[in-house]
């Protein structure tokens, strides 16, 4: 059976992609602000390579780049063997499409619907900066690992509750463990940290809130879920509502999963951070323990 080996929470933003392209992905071409993001992501890149997953489940939010308001799904799953890039209005970036695996999409859809998550099924999903902005910072653009994308409504009120997004993580874990393959699955959630990109509060960011979130998510999920969304929005901006996607990742891991790495920076407008977690023993099975490596 397939296994959940760990999870990543990571923020996304259009600027992340713009800056990556401007710098041609080369460290010395980034300015100091985005260099800090690049450097922080190096830790994620290294752990992602060591964890060596064979499939990714990526929980993200679309920004009206594929879906539109005439029909807006609360929870949608991409089912197919590949996912193209969405044109966000500025033209396409020079990046390859994302590899999918239809058998994973079919399996997870069946499992989730059987467990009361009435997924919208997207057979022709195009994906925006929700995934494409951070991915080249942590993985080479040949995209070696297929993924199953799950899109969460962060556009149109009412948004799914924080409790529901936590429960989605629980259902995903059970669904992954019911897959009759020996895949090693990493659950990734991506949502901006503190930011607000409209209204008089445009540009609001809160590094203290973001850092506290990164520190407490591994061990205090229930308390974070219980905190009203309005409070995240008040202190973190309207788009900090996207932090609730990170609950799905945390809930998809066991209680014993632990944090391996986190970092935070505020390059421009958006609080940006990442958290890498793994199930106990997963890294040790791959690599010799650190003591043995250094002795």
């Amino acid at each position: 059976m397939a296994e959940v080996i760990g999870g990543i929470g990571i923020s996304h933003s259009p600027s992340m992609g713009v800056e990556y392209d401007k710098a041609n992905g080369t460290r010395e071409n980034f300015d100091d602000r985005w260099g800090a993001w690049y450097d922080g992501c190096a830790g994620v890149r290294e752990l992602l390579a060591r964890l060596d997953p064979s499939h990714l489940v990526v929980v993200y939010n679309d920004h009206l780049n594929y879906f539109d308001l005439d029909n807006y799904p609360t929870l949608a799953i991409g089912v197919g063997d590949g996912f193209r890039q969405a044109d966000e209005g500025f033209g396409l970036r020079d990046l390859p499409d994302l590899p999918g695996d239809a058998s994973w999409g079919i399996h997870l859809t069946e499992h989730l619907v059987a467990n009361d998550f009435d997924m919208t099924v997207s057979q022709d999903l195009a994906i925006d900066h929700g995934i494409f902005s951070w991915l080249p910072y942590v993985s080479d653009p040949a995209w070696p690992v297929p993924l199953t994308p799950i899109a969460v409504n962060m556009i149109r009120q009412p948004l799914p509750t924080q409790r529901r997004l936590r429960d989605l993580g629980l259902a995903l874990r059970a669904g992954i463990e019911a897959m009759p393959t020996d895949d090693r699955v990493l659950v990734i959630a991506t949502g901006g940290m503190s930011h607000q990109i409209s209204g008089g509060r445009f540009g609001l960011a809160n590094a203290r809130l973001d850092r506290r979130f990164l520190e407490t998510l591994p061990t205090e999920l229930d308390a974070l879920v219980a905190l009203p969304r309005e409070e995240y929005v008040r202190y973190g901006g309207t788009e900090a509502a996207e932090l609730s996607l990170w609950f799905t990742m945390r809930a998809a891991l066991s209680e014993r999963a632990r944090s391996l790495y986190s970092f935070h920076t505020v390059p421009q407008i958006t609080g940006c951070g990442a958290l890498v977690m793994a199930e106990p023993g997963v890294l040790e099975r791959i690599d010799p323990p650190m003591e043995e490596q250094t002795s």
């Binding site: 409209s198 509060r201 540009g203 609001l204 960011a205 590094a207 407490t216």
Partner: peptide
């Protein structure tokens, strides 16, 4: 954003990130 805030685009670009540091009362 600059139009929403009511300032020049350059002023907003310089001001960002507009940091605050409050926390919700029940934040763990």
């Amino acid at each position: 954003g600059a139009h929403n805030v009511g300032c020049d685009r350059g002023v907003l670009a310089t001001a960002c990130p507009r940091l605050i540091d409050g926390l919700p009362e029940r934040m763990p």
